[in-house]
C-alpha cells in the first residue's frame, strides 16, 4: 500500500492547509468578542478538524466530530447564548499578560516533551504495537465484522461503552434537573395549552 511519493506529498500539503485553517479560526475565536461569531467559528473549527481526521484515516472519529462537534454543540451553545449574553467583555491589562506567559511556558514544556515522541506515522511506535495490532488480528476470527472500530467499541470494550452511555444519560438527567421541565419551561405551557384546547372542544361538543 505504500510507495506513492506523490500521495504522501499531497497528504502533507493537506495537513499543512488544514492546520493553517485551524490556526486562523482559533486565533479569530481568541480575538473576537461577539459570542455569536465565536460559536459559529467553533463549529467551523470542529468541521475542519473532522476533515483532518479523515486525512488521518480516522473515519469514525471524523463522523462523530462532524455530527457532535459541528452539529449538537453549536446548537447547544446557541441555545445557552440566547439565555445568557451576546457579547463577551474585552479582557484587559494583566488579565491578558499573565495567561499569555503561563500558556507560553506550558507550550514550551509540552514541545520539549515531544522530542522523545515517536515520529508522525511511525509503525513501530509503542502506541502502535501491542494491543492495537491484537484488535486488528482478532476482529475477523472472533467477531467477523469488518469495522474494527465498531468491534472494539461494542464488544472488546463493551463495558467501557456502557459507562459512556451512562455518562450521556446522566448528563441529560443533570441538565433537565438544572433547567427543569417545571413551571418555567415551555413543556408545561404546551401541555397546559393542549389541555385548554381539549376542554374547549369538549364544551363545543356539549
Amino acid at each position: 500500500m505504500t510507495g506513492f511519493e506523490g500521495a504522501t506529498l499531497a497528504i502533507d500539503l493537506l495537513n499543512i492547509t488544514l492546520l493553517t485553517i485551524l490556526f486562523v479560526v482559533a486565533i479569530a475565536i481568541a480575538r473576537l468578542r461577539s459570542l455569536f461569531a465565536i460559536v459559529m467559528l467553533s463549529g467551523i473549527y470542529s468541521l475542519v478538524s473532522a476533515t483532518w481526521f479523515v486525512a488521518l484515516d480516522a473515519v469514525d472519529v471524523a463522523f462523530t466530530e462532524a455530527a457532535v462537534g459541528a452539529g449538537i454543540s453549536t446548537a447547544l451553545f446557541l441555545g445557552a447564548m440566547v439565555l445568557t449574553s451576546r457579547t463577551a467583555k474585552a479582557e484587559k491589562g494583566a488579565a491578558r499578560i499573565v495567561p499569555l506567559l503561563v500558556v507560553i511556558a506550558t507550550g514550551a514544556i509540552l514541545i520539549y516533551a515531544t522530542i522523545d515522541l515517536p515520529g508522525f506515522g511511525d509503525p513501530t511506535s509503542p502506541a502502535n504495537t501491542g494491543v492495537g495490532v491484537e484488535f486488528i488480528e482478532r476482529t475477523y476470527p472472533e467477531i467477523a465484522i469488518p469495522n474494527i472500530v465498531t468491534a472494539v467499541l461494542a464488544s472488546y470494550r463493551g463495558f467501557d461503552t456502557l459507562g459512556e452511555v451512562g455518562v450521556v444519560f446522566a448528563a441529560g438527567l443533570a441538565v433537565s434537573l438544572l433547567l427543569g421541565f417545571g413551571e418555567r419551561s415551555l413543556g408545561a405551557s404546551v401541555r397546559e395549552e393542549d389541555r385548554l384546547n381539549a376542554l374547549k372542544k369538549d364544551e363545543e361538543k356539549s
Binding site: G79, L83, G172, S176, S185, L186
Partner: peptide
Amino acid sequence: TIFYAFAGR
C-alpha cells in the same frame, strides 16, 4: 432532552 431543556427555558 438536553436540547429541550435549553430551548424550553
